[in-house]
Design a binder for these strands. Structure first.
Lengths: 204, 204
DNA sequence: CTCCTTGTTGGACGATCGTATAACAAGATT
DNA sequence: AATCTTGTTATACGATCGTCCAACAAGGAG
């Protein structure tokens, strides 16, 4: 009786828009409840749609989590690009800006880590997920290698340098999300910056 | 009919031994199926006991996963200690041995990562889990700080140095477990070793 | 040998899971 | 205005989840 009879019971959406709304709902659920409390029904409720719609757009919940991870990764990459662009033309400043961005919002966020954890938990049992992880991580390191090349690092040194930078940044980011009181973002940046400096000083 | 009527239907075990067998069964299930496929029934089947026994020894499955994590962490710590002890008396060699041990069995193991992922996925929603993570990680860094002190590092530098070493080691360990073909354990050791060297060279 | 303690079993219970599908209605087409 | 397409809903389904508990039996106590 309190219902407005003139308003439609539901509205149709562009397929891509609906997909995106489901992905964003998944990210919000993961951020709020963690990887343990995610399910088709909770996601559908968060997105304001019926549970059946999830399987209409995604081949199972694993595919939805994979899509959510890919979307979050794209947002992280965009944040990296924005930080690098804002750093100006100096190659070293651009590299440091890329790294420092990992320790500030929106990247350093316990809620975002939940998406990574949910994704990691599927790598072992799902080959598609494993392949996606491998590809996105390779792209991540490739971006670092480009920045290192711009800094003048020799070609044969870049691969291990990028692996090392990605490792220390990921390790700091992980702990910063799991236990933010352990150290500050500024301390994380200082640690990462010193590590990068060591890659250029004293080339042996 | 094929049953041996003289054999007991079950055997009683010491409480600590039974707890341990359930913990080890949980670790095997996590290593085999990943964090997604773990449940009370699967664990009980793996341990060769009835499902009800899990709740008799642990306050829910979250507590069992926490106990499994604590047990795995103790085994990792023991492996660290053994590696350090085998390295001899030289402080720097002991520190490097500690770090290098992270990239070799039994620590570098995709199955072991599953225990960590299952545990991480509970940190956000369970305060006891969060506290356990904080305590065990603090102990981890404290061990590193002791090794750094033995190497002659000044007191005020040790905290950030230990955070940096734990971060780069964790980052390398994580990727080594998720995608072992990306780089070799020897490359991981070389990266970590160079990072540690940089902490002592050029003290600025 | 008998009793007693209690570790252990095995199933019941309600909740929730992922998936599948028939009925419905929104909105473009004609 | 009538029709058609299909995005969406609502529900049903079987499986599995974590938890609980009464009954059983192993094995030490007396």
């Amino acid at each position: 009786m309190t219902e407005d009879m003139t308003r439609p019971a539901f509205t149709r959406a562009e397929p891509d828009a609906r997909r995106l709304s489901l992905i964003e709902a998944t990210a919000r659920v993961l951020a709020r409840q963690g990887a343990a409390g995610v399910s088709v029904r909770v996601i559908a409720l968060e997105a304001g749609v019926s549970p059946g719609l999830v399987n209409h757009y995604f081949d199972g919940i694993d595919a939805l989590i994979a899509a959510t991870y890919a979307h979050a990764d794209a947002q992280v990459s965009a944040a990296f690009d924005a930080a690098v662009a804002a750093a100006g033309p100096a190659p070293r400043a651009r590299l440091l800006a890329h790294v420092t961005a990992s320790f500030a919002p929106p990247i350093a966020d316990p809620g975002l880590l939940a998406t990574w954890i949910a994704f990691w938990s599927l790598v072992k049992s799902n080959d598609d997920i494993a392949r996606l992880h491998r590809d996105l991580y390779a792209a991540y390191r490739r971006d670092l290698e480009t920045l290192l090349a711009d800094c003048g690092m020799a070609d044969h040194d870049r691969r291990l340098a990028a692996i090392g930078i990605s490792a220390i940044v990921d390790g700091l980011w992980l702990e910063l999300c799991l236990a933010p009181e352990t150290f500050t973002p500024a301390e994380a940046s200082a640690i990462a910056e010193r590590h990068i400096d060591s890659l250029f000083d004293l080339p042996q």
